[in-house]
Structures are given as C-alpha cells and as structure tokens.
Write a protein that binds this DNA or RNA. Structure first.
Lengths: 369, 369
DNA sequence: GCCCGCTAGGCAAGCGGTTGCCATGCGATC
DNA sequence: GATCGCATGGCAACCGCTTGCCTAGCGGGC
C-alpha cells in the first residue's frame, strides 16, 4: 500500500490545503457576546431559544443577526461534552456498505440523519464479533446517542458488544430484544401471486424453495416470502404446475430450472425466488429462443442492481433498502428525541416494523386471456 | 414514512434497551485518580505515555492496571474539545455509497480508519452543491481533522464549500489544488493490449471510443485508458481491425457492436471499454451461438459486480476502488499526523497518486497460436 | 549549613458550550 | 419612602481531558 503513495513522478513535499487562514479563527459564543454586549449565557439561551428564558424579542433579534453575520455555528464537540449528547448515531453493518444488495440502506439512513442535522458514524465489521465489539466501544467513546445495526441478509444474530442503555434498532435482521425494521415479505409473496393471477396466469412454476432457508439464523424472512406465495396460491385455488428447489439462489439454478420448465411446456409464468435465479432463466431463454414474456412470464423478488441489465426489464418485488434505512434512522431519532422533523410524533413500539415491498412492474409479465 | 412505523400488530409503548444501568456510570480519569491516589493529570500523562513526563515505571504500571480493571476508555469528545482534534475525518461523496460501482471505496477507507482508531463521518450529496456545503459545514462543527471527497466516476469538479485549512484528498476525481487518488488507467490500457498480444491475438476490435469522454469534466481518466490502449497497439505494430464508437457505455452498445463484429468475422478478440458493454457482447454471442472465448475473446475494464454474473467469467482490468479508498485514507491520516500505523512514514507529495489496476484473469480470453 | 538539582507529581487554566441560580433596575404598590 | 415583584440578563460551575508551569521532598556537594 505504502508504495502506491510514492507512484508517479516525484515532486517536492507539499500538501493540499485551501485557504489556510480560514482555520485561524473559529467563531464562538464569546465573540457574539462581545459584539452584542451581552453575556455568553444570554447568547446561548437566545440561539437555542430555550423555553422559559425571558429574553425580549428585540434582544434576541439582535443576537441572531450578529450570529448570522459572523457565520456562527455551535461547536458540537463542546456542546456534546456538556450535554452528554453528540447528535450522532452509529451504524454497524456486516457488509452492507460494500455489497450490491443493500448499500441503498446506507443512503436512506444518511438522508434521514441529514434532515435532523445528525451525523452518522459508520463501521463495517465483516461479521467478526471482535470488530463489532471494537466498533461499539469506539462509538461509545464518542458518546453516540443511539445505534443502528444493519445486515446484508435478514437473519437472526446475537449482538456481541455492549450497547447498554443506548437506543438501538436493527435493520434487515433480528436480534433478541431489539426492534427490527424488516421488509414485509409475507405481503410481498401474497402480492406477487395475486398479480400473476390478475394477469390471467393459472399455470405457474416456482423456483427456489429450500427448507434450509427456514432456519432463522439463515434467514428471518424467506420463510415468510414463501408462505405468502403458498397462501396466495391456495387462496386462488391453485397449485404450482412445477417446482424446482434449490439452496443456492444463483443464476445456475435458474439455468437448470428453466431448462426443466421449458421442456415440460406447462407453465405460463415462473416465479423465481430472487433476481439472480431469474437472470439464469433469462439466459436459458435466450439460448433456447424462448421469448419472455410472450412465451413465458417471469416474476421475481429483490430488484437488485442486476435487474437493471435484464432485457426485457424484469418485473420484481423490490426489497426496499432505501426506505428501510430511512425509516430505521427516523425511528431511532425519534427514540433519541432529538430528531428535528421527527420529534413529537408518537410511535408505538413493536418488535417489528414492516416496510412494504413494492411491485416494480416492468416488462417480464404478459397478460393472458 | 411515518405510517410504516405503525405497521403490524399494536403493542404497548416500549423501547428496546439492553442493560439500562451500563449507562449509569462512565469511567473517567478522575475515577482512576481517586483509586490510585494520584492526580488526574498524572493519570493522563501515563495513559497517553507522553514523552518528557517523568513518571516512574512502577507508578505507570499501577495506573494502567487500574485503568484496565475499571475498563477505562477516554472520552473522545472531551479530548477533542481540549486538543482541537477529533480523530475523525469526513468523507463526502456524490453517490459512491449507493452505487454498484464504487462502494468498495467506502470499505477501503473504513478499514484504514479502523486501523488508526479513527472514525469516519460520511455524507452523500447527490452532486448538489448545497448539500456539499452543508456537509462540510456540519463536519467542521464536529472538528474533523481532514476530509476526503469521493466520486463515483473520475472527473474534474469544483468543490463548493470551504474546506479551509483542512487536509484534503480527492478519491477517483480531480479538484484543482487538491491531491487525487486515481486508478492508473494509462498503464491498464497498456497492460490490456499487451496481454491480448501475448496470448497471440493480432486481429483486435475495440468498442467504446467517444471524443465526448475526453472532456475532463466528463472524465478525467478515460482519455488515459484509451491512450494506453492506442499506444500499446502502435508499439505492437497493430491497428484495430474494427472499431465501434459509442458514448453510452451500456449493454445495448455491446449488442450492436457485437453484431457488427460477428458479421465481419475478422476479429479474434474484442476489447470493450467497460463491463457493461461486454455484457451486451455476451448477450449477443449467446443469441448467435458464438462461443466465448473459443470463437472470440473478450477483454474488458472495470470488474464491476455485474462481471461476476457473466459466463464464461470475464477477464477484465479491475478498477481498484477498495485500494483507492484505503490508500486515500492512509495518506490523509499521514497528513493529519495521527494515523497510528501510518505515522512516521514519509510521503512525498504529488498531484496524483496512481493506484494500479490489476488484470483479473478469468475465462474470456483464449490463447491462439 | 546552605544551595542546587533532580525526581515525582500536583495545580489550575482552558477548550466552548449549557444551565441552575442569583443580581440588578425599574415601576407599581402600600 | 420603603417594599415588592417582574423583566432582563449575568455568574460561575461543570462536562472530561490536556498541558504549561510550579512545588515538595530528598540527596549530595561545597
């Protein structure tokens, strides 16, 4: 690594700095106090417009003017020291930031934090409990006000490391005694089948069932997805014309399953348990000259990035990572009690907050009559 | 959004908290001072083992023991207030966190920060200068020690917002007067062609040239990639048997280009300017029954996630986002002077730090004789 | 006997806010 | 004219840590 810093033509030692002098002076309450002839405490009261302080509007106005003119911004470090609140929360993930699946979650929570003027401390732990512990410890020394744990795949875990007393939520996962934000998979399973049925399909195949996924330590949600699908099928008085099981939800399963299904020629629609399987189905279809959706429709789950490359564009039930991130952060901020916009909204606590999985209607499902 | 918090069955108001009492008492220097009969300042000196302080080893040992026993961890807020350094830096990106391309960058810099016990404050700005300014301002109020700017696609930008006096680096981009960490595209272009030539290819086609990409505001690096390719071809005494230009580097360009190239039957290898184009080429190849790499080899650039889905697995020049993130953070920490492991390594400043783009050799290039 | 110097460690100021409590001035009241 | 009370706003402690400077105590040299 170090060597890379030395690559390229040699130049004399110099570091990039812009506007050196801007660091010289940082505006404090004392500056405003001096300028206004008031005391630091009065200025503080005004700028936080503290209820109960009896400062006449004229004075307050003057103070605010001076503050604006000087470009005052409170030092969060100092404030944090005094109040014990940092106006920042932590986000600990297994590998959310780096994966193709769930990085939108980070975006969602960053957005929510920004709305409340909160900062987010992020740590990735690669599922190593040593790193989780270290991250929590480090964050606590920064006096974070709360903590969010995010998982790449929704499953049950134990949380190593002490989050004692800190408000906490887990996004896309399950930890005993901690509130979860989860995708509403059961509902999505239901919706998926209803959609297909509403488009006239009655001969439906399903790819991806695997009992292994029912273990909560493997997945906390897949069981619900499948249960939703099964229940909706039963409600519609249908059963699958063909099923191909498989633990590894990768394109190869789709290849293989599609070959079977195409050979039998009995399904008008295929539900794939995720987009990667659907990708394999697409690949096989192209190979065989089977036209989607005219000869067979495909309905999938997840809407990961991969989906954007598939032609025709695939219709899929989206995993709402962005929304989950945002909602989790909003709920956390509400719990903390500091979130500007969120404050004052009463939220009734549950174990699980379910976020809808929207049907992203694109071009892979045909209507048949 | 709010409504999502109310989804699911109603439960009484309760918030998830673990070990309520752990928050009760936080160990401070004063606690250690009390226990050891020493003064707070002495304890501080010991725990920071400040050079120049003349504390006998026996005392130091005792203090360290007590600190460990009590589980002391310094309050970074308080320390930061006193020292003016937060041991945190900021990362401002356009949309790095959320995109399929570059999120590994975040991982790299998180890892480097962790090694030095630094925290990272992350903000995404969606390219809105208003949000960039806000992010910088917010971070400054937290007294960050330095700032990293990360871009999804390497291009030249102006930095709105005042980073006055703060050490800064830009990752995968160019800002006047700020040091950049960039992929070594010229070298990669060279290497790509050399590789193909070394495998016996002399009739090579190229897909993706576009003069529009030469504008530094569009791309700071594509020009170098193409220049590397061109120079290596010239060095080898070759010229492309066919070229298909295109500004939009999407699968459709690959579809279209592959059709042309397959029709002419004169190329043994295709260089695609990026993986998405290669994806289109693959798609067309499957449609036409053209076997990669036996009938035609494909060499690509980027190694984005998409590449992992392509069969046969594609050989490509990887954009080293993880390393770029790590190196940028290490250099920033060195500049700050606080980075544990990094401290003391002298880095000579340049305008650009070039990170090698490794050839990821997989299965899409055949050797011909 | 006095002074010097060294060792070991303490004092207290401050970083920039927040906050409980007190002080001043003024008109109104008795 | 003394008292009261309210409207304004100041004082100072404190959050936990760092750091410049000072001190107590002791042994040794002249």
């Amino acid at each position: 690594m170090a060597t890379a810093c030395l690559a390229g033509p040699f130049r004399p030692l110099r570091w990039s700095q812009i506007g050196e002098d801007a660091l010289a002076k940082r505006i404090t309450l004392a500056d405003i106090a001096l300028r206004s002839g008031l005391s630091v405490s009065t200025v503080s009261m005004v700028l936080n417009d503290r209820p109960g302080s009896r400062i006449p509007e004229s004075t307050a106005l003057r103070v605010r003017d001076i503050a604006k003119e000087l470009g005052y911004a409170p030092d969060r470090t100092a404030r944090g020291l005094r109040t014990g609140r940092s106006e920042a929360f932590g986000f600990i993930s297994d590998e959310v930031t780096v994966t193709r699946y769930a990085s939108a979650m980070v975006r969602g929570l960053l957005d929510a934090a920004e709305d409340s003027n909160y900062s987010v401390l992020i740590a990735e732990t690669d599922n190593q409990s040593r790193r989780v512990e270290a991250a929590i410890r480090l964050m606590r020394t920064r006096r974070i006000d709360g903590i969010l744990v995010g998982l790449m795949r929704a499953r049950q875990i134990d949380l190593p490391g002490d989050i004692g007393g800190l408000p906490a939520l887990i996004v896309n996962g399950k930890v005993d005694g901690v509130v979860s934000v989860l995708p509403d998979e059961y509902r999505a399973g239901l919706d998926a089948v209803h959609y297909l049925v509403s488009r006239g399909h009655r001969r439906i195949a399903f790819v991806g069932r695997a009992p292994e996924h029912l273990d909560p330590r493997v997945s906390w949600t897949i069981g619900r997805r499948v249960a939703g699908i099964d229940d909706a099928m039963a409600d519609a008085g249908l059963s699958f014309v063909h099923e191909v099981g498989g633990v590894e939800w990768e394109p190869e399963l789709g290849d293989h399953a599609a070959a079977e299904i195409f050979d039998r020629r009995d399904a008008t629609a295929i539900i794939t348990a995720n987009d990667r399987i659907a990708f394999g189905v697409y690949r096989k279809a192209r190979e065989r000259g089977v036209e989607i959706p005219f000869e067979v429709s495909v309905l999938s789950f997840d809407d990961e990035q991969l989906a954007s490359y598939m032609r025709p564009q695939i219709t899929t039930m989206r995993l709402p990572y962005l929304e989950m991130g945002r909602i989790a952060a909003e709920c956390l901020l509400e719990r903390i009690g500091g979130g500007g916009k969120v404050a004052g909204r009463l939220v009734h606590e549950q174990d699980e907050i379910l976020v809808p999985m929207p049907l992203i209607e694109r071009d892979s499902v045909a209507t048949i009559s």
